[in-house]
């Protein structure tokens, strides 16, 4: 049993390396498939990061009446934090709001002078609320509109931003669904092309399979080396796809940074190299071995 397994692996490797140039087309097609798979993984991460950073920018601000005490506002903050939909709540006091306002308009003398003339702080304290999901904002807005809180609140920005928030939420949803659909469709195409290429490769050796059967080789002994060969194709294709992706990441990263400053594509690529390569290996080995099994079984029928 061990001897047979050893021989199957040995012959699989031998035929892989002896075929030389004959392996190149199959390897190219598989590398292409793996490359598509890798690109899709990166694309999904990329869109995900874009969405996360967009989501982070969405928030609701609640401005309180100037008469409301800080303690009351902090109580509201705690009650908001206890909601499942709420990700974080930041308190901005009147003084902080004024300081930020002055900072923002420090180059505009009319505004600073106007504030000085005014003498007192015209700004309200506020709470900035971020939700776990943009779709949850209506729930939070409804909570704020409740009878107990209503008298304290001067203004909720949600109502002004509602259209933007809703649209953003639907863009987020659609692009994620499109990403999944794209992944599925392109993966299926890659699998079919690879399968067909391997079937053609094995088709050229169908006479050999016939000879093996006549010499008395069992089906396992015939199929084994082809599976080993398919696995090797997968491994090599995975390595090649990663190697090809390296210069592309290097070239594309600066452009992505101009578009979206928060996203470091190359950094992500190298930082998650282990995981990406792992998925590539699993995908490649599955693709190669399953294709081989399907292809050989067509010529093993008795």
């Amino acid at each position: 049993m061990v001897t047979t397994l050893y021989r199957i692996i040995k012959y699989g490797m031998k035929s892989f390396f002896r075929n030389g140039w004959q392996s190149v087309p199959t390897l190219s097609v598989m590398t292409l498939a793996m490359f598509v798979f890798l690109s899709l993984m990166l694309f999904n991460v990329f869109t995900n990061d874009v969405l996360v950073s967009l989501r982070d920018k969405i928030d609701i601000s609640v401005y309180f009446q100037q008469t409301v005490s800080e303690d009351d506002i902090l109580r509201v903050q705690r009650s908001l934090e206890s909601l499942a939909e709420v990700k974080s709540v930041t308190y901005v006091s009147r003084d902080q709001a004024l300081a930020a306002f002055r900072q923002r308009h420090q180059d505009d003398p009319t505004i600073t002078q106007a504030l000085d003339v005014l003498g007192e702080n015209p700004l309200s304290a506020s709470l900035n609320i971020k939700a776990n999901d943009p779709k949850d904002f209506p729930v939070i807005a409804a909570y704020l509109g409740g009878d107990s809180l209503k008298p304290m609140i001067d203004q909720v920005t949600y109502n002004q931003n509602q259209v933007v928030i809703d649209r953003l939420a639907s863009i987020v949803d659609t692009s994620q669904r499109a990403g999944i659909a794209l992944t599925v469709i392109l993966s299926i195409i890659a699998i079919l092309v690879t399968l067909n290429t391997i079937i053609l490769t094995i088709y050229s050796t169908r006479d050999e399979i016939g000879v093996m059967r006549l010499v008395g080789a069992g089906n396992k002994f015939i199929r084994g080396p082809y599976i080993v060969q398919g696995v090797l194709f997968g491994v090599f294709a995975a390595v090649l796809a990663i190697v090809i992706m390296m210069p592309i990441m290097y070239a594309a990263s600066p452009y992505v940074r101009i578009l979206l400053p928060d996203i470091d594509l190359q950094g992500y690529f190298y930082g998650n190299m282990g995981m990406l390569f792992g998925y590539e290996l699993i995908f490649g080995i599955l693709l190669g071995s399953v294709s081989s099994v399907i292809a050989v079984s067509r010529y093993l029928k008795l």
Binding site: K14, S15, E208, G210
Partner: peptide, 26 residues
């Protein structure tokens, strides 16, 4: 079995072709 058209395995050398008949028996 010996055939008119030999039916050797083209990817194996003479030694391996002969050895193959023993290998299939383990």
């Amino acid at each position: 079995i010996v055939f008119q058209d030999f039916r050797l395995l083209p990817t194996k050398n003479a030694y391996e072709n002969v050895a193959f008949a023993l290998e299939v028996e383990g």
